[in-house]
Design a protein around this nucleic acid. Structure first.
Lengths: 312, 312
DNA sequence: TATCCTTACGGAATTCGTAAGCATG
DNA sequence: CATGCTTACGAATTCCGTAAGGATA
């Protein structure tokens, strides 16, 4: 039994039981992967994969447990490296952040710049995706920190902590009739075609809920993953935009932002980590830049302690 | 980085940072152990052990974390084997039980015999010791199941589940004045020299508490780890014995047992496991023989879930 | 001086890549 | 017949034991 075998099994599972793919991903030969896995199965006395002739078809029942256990082992092995890096005072390294467009564009520039000031040697790597992709990137360790508004909660295997609260705003071109209303109601809004986020991102669910609660079914003219795209289409008159307030801080010439917190309520952006992961020094500092009230000890407790929603 | 290095580090810690001892325990050469550990330290970039010249003096701060992580890894590696053994339907193997004398002598014979009937191939190995030793044996995996009355609770890293409740009894030779009393009070008892358990075992603390509460300070003529020893000394007239009721079920000729539940209250014997350990089929069955209300799923939850005192 | 860790070195075992074989879809 | 897993085999590497060196208590 050895760590290499574990890596091969893990990668095989991640690549959909395709050993050829797994071998490629791990920069090794396919027969080597095959042999290692067979050896492990032999040693444990049970097959991990169910084979149909010579292809892997699915994971056996004991295989499920074995894969879970292997994941846990490799997470800890990764932690050993991280402990080393932490104590060598490595102020160099790569910080991989998985996040959504809105966060990457409008919120992260500040914290990232501050981090680079503290640790000039740290290389920042941004992975953009939907919140679900963010969660997946954390789980397979392509990223260490995740940042998003939705769907990070409820992921077993991830822990998440609140970063900041924000509200939606309504975006219209200058001179639009809605811009002159004293106070916009949900029904005023429902009269116009809407341009807003794709259902998977950035608090879209709060928008849907608000309309559903008022029994309104507004026309959604366009859905986008991206605040800038939304603003662009509002500018050309496609409809009324609803975006996160952060998205209006810049590049909003010719547009008017109208507060809409009273319509959709507050949203909370959260950072997330894989549960049980060991953070390096600069990763901890970065977490604190994302959420200044966060202490090292609270962070440690959250990462290694009980599953819970940690509120500050 | 490899599993062998982890085993060497773990054993080195267990043997008080003596690599020579660790090598012996692992049936390998001392230089091999030394080299492997140095290699690991080199790879992680931090020393695990603080060296004074050429001896290991203590564990460094990062070393503490590394050792903890290594323990977790090796526990899971052990679990892989156990998963294999579980699914190969291995009805053979060794069941290592760590327990105290009273349990081994008076309670375990039943469950052990039943287990052997269910799994005739299973070899049972009994490790006897004080409750603290029981806990230690579970932690370093010389035993899988522990059974004792005290001090298994409050051990971080162990989970324990109740098995059965019992009471103390007073033991006197036939014809002893106490034997004719209608109801014995704690003050009656305090008039006689006592023969009972050593402070570390089998509910001795409940005995001490009862006397302390009544502000009595009886003379303790003899303390023993062993109910049979106590009975022997009672027989020769050394004093009045206090033992667990189970200990009077046999081999009590010439002695009288007087119920003393009203004096010392109930005691609960508990089984214990190392937290996170994967049990084999016959180990689970054995746990159920110890505590018939225990279900597989409750057991799984207890072993892998939240730290908690699981009461049935 | 006895204990105990590190370094040095050589043989043995393991690992890993290439080539060939064979089953599936 | 293209994809994809397994088997076979040989070279390179790693592992691990013995022997020697050096530091502490």
């Amino acid at each position: 039994m050895n760590l290499q075998q574990f890596r091969y099994v893990q990668e095989a599972v991640r690549r959909g039981l395709n050993l050829t793919e797994a071998a490629k991903a791990l920069h090794t030969s396919q027969p080597g992967v095959s042999k290692a896995i067979l050896d492990l199965e032999d040693e444990l006395g049970v097959p991990i994969f169910e084979r149909h002739g010579k292809r892997l078809r699915r994971i056996t029942e004991p295989g499920q447990q074995i894969v879970r256990t292997i994941d846990a082992i490799l997470l800890q092995v990764g932690n050993l490296r991280r402990i080393g890096a932490h104590y060598t005072g490595q102020h160099a390294g790569k910080l991989s952040i998985a996040t959504t467009h809105t966060q990457a564009r409008y919120f992260l520039p500040g914290p990232v710049a501050q981090l680079r000031q503290l640790y000039p040697q740290v290389q920042v790597e941004l992975h953009q995706g939907t919140p679900d992709q963010v969660a997946r990137m954390l789980m397979d360790e392509s990223a260490v920190v995740g940042l998003a508004t939705e769907s990070l909660l409820g992921h077993e295997g991830l822990i998440s902590l609140p970063c900041y609260e924000w509200h939606h705003v309504i975006v219209v071109p200058e001179g639009h009739p809605l811009a002159s209303l004293a106070r916009i109601g949900i029904d005023d809004l429902a009269l116009h075609p809407l341009v807003t986020y794709h259902p998977t991102v950035t608090g879209r669910s709060r928008i849907d809920n608000a309309f559903a609660k008022a029994r309104l079914h507004p026309e959604v003219a366009l859905e986008a993953l991206d605040s800038d795209v939304i603003k662009t289409y509002v500018r050309v008159g496609l409809g009324v935009g609803i975006v996160a307030e952060m998205a209006m801080r810049e590049g909003s010439e010719g547009l008017v932002a109208i507060p809409a917190g009273h319509l959709f309520g507050p949203s909370v952006s959260r950072m997330a980590f894989r549960r049980g992961v060991q953070l390096r020094e600069f990763e901890m500092r970065f977490a604190q830049l994302l959420s200044p009230l966060l202490t090292d000890s609270l962070l440690q407790r959250a990462l290694h302690g009980e599953p819970d929603n940690y509120e500050l």
